[in-house]
């Protein structure tokens, strides 16, 4: 099943042509990893999917992005963002307790019942594999957690909104190898129930957990295929160069 259908997407920020004629589809329950050197448009692509780009005043776009066959530009953007969650590059806990961070999304939807909120928080934390580490101290500030824990908190916070798709923008860039391994494990398990799009600057990470991989360069989609194929027999030499670390 196709989750996202992107056709001829062009994006400009003022005079910068950030994405050039991107056409691709994102399948349900896959991990699509996006790799590419700096400024290749990976973040821009990701933030298109939950309509965060348009907050920039110099943003301009052409083309169609469909989510579940609906044009996202015609959808209510708050509704879209409930269905398409995002985890940012650096851990971004809100200045609230662990509990209130997770309950933030459900509360926005009007859930006030404490028992119900508690249940949602517990479920979300368990799915993000953080519950055992924090269950006795849900009331402390989320800033007291380690970086890796904060990042899993951000996943739990997204899960509590019950999205269908989760976007990750270099979620491990600030983490140590052990936290990174935990994050990857978490993402692999999430795949069963969610569609994941993972932008990563770590080629090995893409190889480890991606089902399919897309390679972006200078705003263009150079190629996209099964991860195995991209990493063994890429069809474009630039992909090969990038994977072997020849540039970027």
């Amino acid at each position: 099943m196709v989750k996202f259908d992107i056709k001829n997407l062009n994006i400009w920020f003022g005079g910068v042509h950030a994405l050039k004629n991107i056409t691709l589809q994102i399948q349900a329950n896959e991990i699509l990893t996006i790799i590419g050197p700096a400024n290749s448009g990976k973040t821009t692509f990701l933030r298109m999917l939950n309509r965060l780009n348009e907050l920039q005043s110099n943003f301009r776009m052409q083309g169609v992005v469909e989510f579940n066959k609906q044009d996202i530009m015609k959808m209510d953007k708050e509704k879209l963002r409930c269905q398409v969650g995002m985890v940012f590059a650096l851990p971004t806990p809100l200045p609230l307790s662990i509990f209130d961070n997770i309950a933030y999304g459900p509360r926005l939807k009007g859930i006030r019942n404490m028992a119900k909120l508690k249940e949602k928080v517990e479920v979300a934390l368990k799915r993000a594999y953080l519950w055992d580490e924090v269950k006795d101290r849900l009331g402390i500030s989320a800033f007291n957690l380690s970086g890796g824990q904060q990042q899993r908190l951000c996943i739990a916070r997204v899960l509590a909104v019950e999205p269908e798709v989760i976007l990750f923008d270099e979620p491990c860039s600030g983490l140590d190898p052990i936290s990174t391994a935990k994050m990857e494990e978490t993402m692999l398990k999430l795949k069963e129930n969610y569609t994941l799009v993972l932008v990563t600057n770590n080629v090995k990470q893409a190889a480890r957990i991606g089902d399919r991989t897309a390679f972006f360069l200078n705003g263009e989609l150079i190629e996209m295929d099964k991860t195995e194929k991209i990493f063994t027999t890429p069809s474009d030499t630039r992909t090969d160069d990038y994977i072997r670390g020849k540039f970027g």
Binding site: G85, Y104, L108
Partner: peptide, 20 residues
Amino acid sequence: HFREVSWSLGASKWQTIRYL
């Protein structure tokens, strides 16, 4: 970035102002 996080969780502009 707090605002962005809030929006990304489905909050409207006013909800973000009000709650965050």
